[in-house]
């Protein structure tokens, strides 16, 4: 677990299955998001279905914004675990979401993000969210994150 990953989950390690609450990110925690797993530059998150996040009462479908928040968090997490130890913090620069189909009511939304390029200043990420199977996406995302780097150590003489 990286420093930043620990900061997101309050230091808890990721078990199998239901994942751990993102207690380090108050808004994500309030929504009930969970970190399921991470790999190098990859993150899987889950948003359990919740009545509080419904955007259309007639159908019970979650608000589009809830999917946006899940994908944004998932992309940010993938940047944290990209393996660049010089990254102190990161912020979303831009995020594009394509909404493919409504999230199935009553089902958790899964999201997977892949950070596929890290430069000195910017990280590029793509992500997908689904409720049934990953090849039937609810939404896809493409994002760029600006990186705040740790101060470089002074060179010794």
């Amino acid at each position: 677990m990286t420093d930043l990953e620990g900061r997101m989950t309050g230091g808890e390690t990721t078990p199998d299955g239901e994942g751990v609450a993102l207690t380090g990110l108050p808004h994500s925690a309030a929504m009930g998001m969970r970190l399921v797993s991470t790999g190098k530059g990859e993150a899987t998150l889950m948003l359990p279905y919740s009545e509080a996040l419904v955007g259309d009462v007639a159908t019970g479908v979650l608000g589009g914004g809830a999917i946006t928040a899940l994908l944004d968090t998932c992309c940010g997490t993938a940047v944290f675990v990209a393996g660049d130890k010089g990254i102190a913090s990161t912020a979303t620069l831009d995020l594009r979401i394509d909404y493919m189909r409504p999230a199935t009511p009553g089902r958790a939304v899964q999201a997977h993000a892949e950070c596929y390029r890290v430069t000195r200043s910017v990280a590029f990420v793509r992500a997908v969210a689904w409720t049934e199977t990953r090849d039937r996406p609810v939404a896809t995302a493409s994002a760029a994150f600006i990186l705040e780097r740790k101060p470089e150590k002074e060179k010794t003489a």
Binding site: T68, A69, S89
Partner: peptide
Amino acid sequence: PDLIGNPLLPALHGGATGAFLEI
């Protein structure tokens, strides 16, 4: 406080701001 994404700065969660714009 529930809208915060980064408690260290602190800053609003980009997802909350995004949802707000969309709605």
